[in-house]
Design a protein around this nucleic acid. Structure first.
Length: 398
DNA sequence: CGAGTTTGACCCGCGC
DNA sequence: GCGCGGGTCAAACTCG
């Protein structure tokens, strides 16, 4: 199974734009008010002292009113940001569950963020269509990824073959792309021949336009090796997660040969410790993938008491690994709980690319669209369940 | 001095 | 069996 999450991020973040617009309005209004005050002073040619006092106090009151209004708006904006984060986290949890349920049905999931919300929603409906047609072709993906700001690919297939496919994907040429196209369609037609291996590890490949050496994903990494991979002059760097001792998660970072501005980061394994909120976005998919691999064995037993509340225990366990607050609050952890979290949950904060993505309303729309299409498909093929309907609700709410 | 990076050596799987 | 290539190790080095 391969799930492809592609996140398209426009350079101009809408929220930033809105904030900017808001600020501009404030400045315009403020300027207007002060200009009006000045105008009054200028119009009133004889400058009486008491009159000037009146003007000063009037200006002060106008400014105070402005400040109060700005405070109110700041509060509202803060609430919006908080709600966005909370919604995203909830969706993330639900997505992991849904993805687990669909692991054998859907070859690819494609999320995109590009342009306005309407486009995102339209793309969301395209997702559903693509899903019904065994997912978008690799060629389309390739074309799409050319436009990408960031793409997230999740795979749970067995090691070497997929690794080679990934190599092909990273250094595409016409022949290999043709082969891949043919291969994927063949496998889609004849059914998946990827036999789950007990030793396989979940791999999540993220492609992002990034000028820095590595993408800031909220985690703590230590470099342990570097290699020049064949066919790519750019060295591949190997990182190990050092956020907790013994954490098995590793990542490989390599620049795309075709476009040096694209950074390909491949994550492997599941974190054995709580993650900063930003990092959970990627870890959730990796963990869900790992859970899917595990489920091949644990779910074989229908009498397995692991299932409760519609959430398989391993899924909940993996969620708990990432966030111990899941049971108690089912929402984003407070910064106090995780001191390394960025204290300001604003899209423009330096908490990492993922944090910015997570708080992007377009991302929410795209996630909602993808989840909705997934669930729609699921309800068509299987019986509806409680988590699905709640997810739909969440999706619609977004 | 501890943590992180660099880099050559080594291990292992795979194809021929 | 051998060579190749990807992945990892570990000593040396750097940096704060």
């Amino acid at each position: 199974m391969e799930i492809n999450l592609s996140l398209r991020i426009e350079r101009e973040e809408s929220q930033d734009f809105e904030m900017q617009e808001l600020d501009d309005n404030h400045f315009a209004e403020k300027e207007e008010a002060s200009m009006a005050a000045i105008g009054e002073v200028e119009d009133g040619a004889p400058l009486d002292v008491s009159l000037q006092d009146n003007h000063n106090t009037g200006e002060l009151s106008v400014l105070e009113m402005e400040m109060n209004r700005m405070k109110e708006e700041n509060k509202v904006l803060r609430k919006v940001v908080e709600k966005t984060m909370q919604d995203y986290y909830d969706l993330q949890m639900k997505f992991a569950v849904v993805q687990q349920n669909n692991r054998q049905k859907d070859p690819q999931i494609f999320l995109s963020l590009n342009g306005d919300k309407q486009q995102a929603i339209q793309r969301g409906s395209n997702i559903a269509k693509n899903l019904q047609k065994h997912g978008s072709s690799p060629l389309e993906d390739e074309e799409n990824e050319e436009e990408l700001g960031l793409s997230l690919r999740l795979r749970t297939g067995s090691g070497e073959r997929e690794r080679k496919e990934e190599e092909n994907h990273e250094t595409p040429n016409l022949a290999s792309m043709k082969n891949k196209f043919h291969e994927s369609h063949l496998s889609a037609i004849t059914g998946s021949h990827v036999v789950p291996s007990p030793n396989r590890k979940a791999r999540v490949s993220v492609r992002a336009r990034c000028q820095t050496a590595t993408m800031n994903d909220g985690c703590q990494w230590r470099k342990y090796g570097q290699k020049i991979a064949k066919g790519n002059p750019c060295p591949r760097a190997y990182y190990r997660c050092t956020a907790a001792p013994g954490c098995p998660v590793r990542k490989q970072v390599q620049r795309c040969q075709e476009d040096m501005s694209i950074l390909i980061t491949t994550y492997e394994g599941t974190h054995n410790h709580p993650l900063p909120f930003g990092a959970t976005a990627m870890a959730a998919t990796a963990s869900a993938s790992a859970a899917a691999a595990e489920s091949s064995f644990t779910l074989l037993d229908s009498s397995n008491p692991a299932l409760s509340n519609g959430i398989p225990s391993f899924t909940r366990a993996s969620l708990l690994h990432q966030n111990p607050h899941f049971i108690n609050h089912q929402r984003a952890p407070s910064p106090a709980a995780f001191p390394w979290m960025p204290s300001k949950l604003s899209p423009s904060s330096n908490g990492g690319n993922v944090t910015a993505i997570a708080s992007d309303p377009k991302f929410r729309v795209a996630v909602a669209a993808a989840i909705t299409s997934l669930i729609n498909k699921e309800t068509q093929t299987t019986q509806p369940n409680a988590s699905s309907s709640s997810s739909i609700g969440a999706g619609r709410e977004l």
